[in-house]
Amino acid sequence: MEGDIAEMGKFIGVGLTAFGMGGAAIGVGTVAGNYLSGALRNPSAAPGQTAMLFIGIAFAEALGIFSFLVALLLMFAV
């Protein structure tokens, strides 16, 4: 195994950014789950709120994408 300490640190950092994706997963799950429970309580109101569902998912997911971006930057650009 070649490489140096800096490279090791880089890979560790990249691995740590994966936690950010976990956060995004929790966020998306919360949004979708709450939408579903609301939709089951009041199915007639559900179709009108699908747009809000997707917007919420997009916002939650964007933060996960940021962590992915950090990972990519660490991996390939630093």
């Binding site: 997009a58 916002f59 997911e61 964007a62 994408i65 940021f66 992915f68 971006l69 990519l72």
Partner: peptide, 16 residues
Amino acid sequence: VSHSIRLAGNMMAGHA
């Protein structure tokens, strides 16, 4: 920022 990175990041991540 989020508007652009969301799209590019999703596409990049998926293809990678």
